[in-house]
Design a protein around this nucleic acid. Structure first.
Lengths: 114, 114
DNA sequence: CCAGAATGATACGGAACCGAAACGATACCC
DNA sequence: GGGTATCGTTTCGGTTCCGTATCATTCTGG
């Protein structure tokens, strides 16, 4: 069933969720990093660097660097593809799942207050 | 009336809107910049650097620099307060209003598809 | 007046990210 | 096998953003 939002609701929701991200102490993910993370968790694997770059319309180094950063935070994992060792398979982590669970809680909670 | 979203809806909405921002060619605003912009447009004036810093829980230079950047894009405007010339009043612009209108269109449209 | 407080801007060194180009490793194909 | 294509990474120079400290300007209170 489709969600229907007014203009004011849409902007207020966006504002409150962004404000929550700014105010908490964790380091913010950039929009690109956030989009990569959500793609990995919402779409079916396998996820390769090349596929992610194509989906986001960005260059491959952007993906590599974002995976480096998010890997340091243990939000994603990299593994070589044994069937084609040129490929890198991007994998989910427990910590990444928890991160997105907290994000969805924030969104849902702010949506109720909008 | 409160919005009610499932976990999957919340994350899918967040994903699709972020993806749209990544894919379009305009330079992305950072989360902090976006939050400042939305605060200026959603909350009642006057908006000073100090107030914005307090609301977002960041230092004043963060606000000054974000206003510099968004001022270059003509998304916001600065004016000295004539009653207390130490203050800077942050003001809306036509271009900023258009920017947020496009943003809300994206959010509302993606919400329908979630 | 003048000392001190308040406000926003600036200086500084460091970190993160960018686009473009080049690189090493691996797979494919004739 | 040897040349070529593919894949992810690295390098390069440059830009932006950061936090902290400091600054100039303006107001306030005695």
């Amino acid at each position: 069933m489709p969600l229907s939002l007014s203009t004011a609701q849409a902007l207020k929701l966006w504002h409150s969720v962004n404000l929550a991200m700014v105010r908490d102490d964790d380091p913010d993910l950039s929009i690109r990093q956030m989009t990569i993370l959500l793609t990995i968790y919402l779409e079916a694997p396998p996820h390769t660097v090349r596929d992610l770059a194509k989906k986001l319309g960005v260059s491959k180094p952007v993906i590599t660097r974002a995976l480096d950063t998010m890997g340091k935070f243990d939000l994603v994992n990299r593994r070589r593809d044994d069937n084609d060792r040129r490929n890198v398979l991007v994998q989910r982590t427990v910590n990444g799942a928890l991160y997105l669970e907290r994000l969805s809680d924030t969104i849902r909670n702010d949506a109720k207050a909008v």
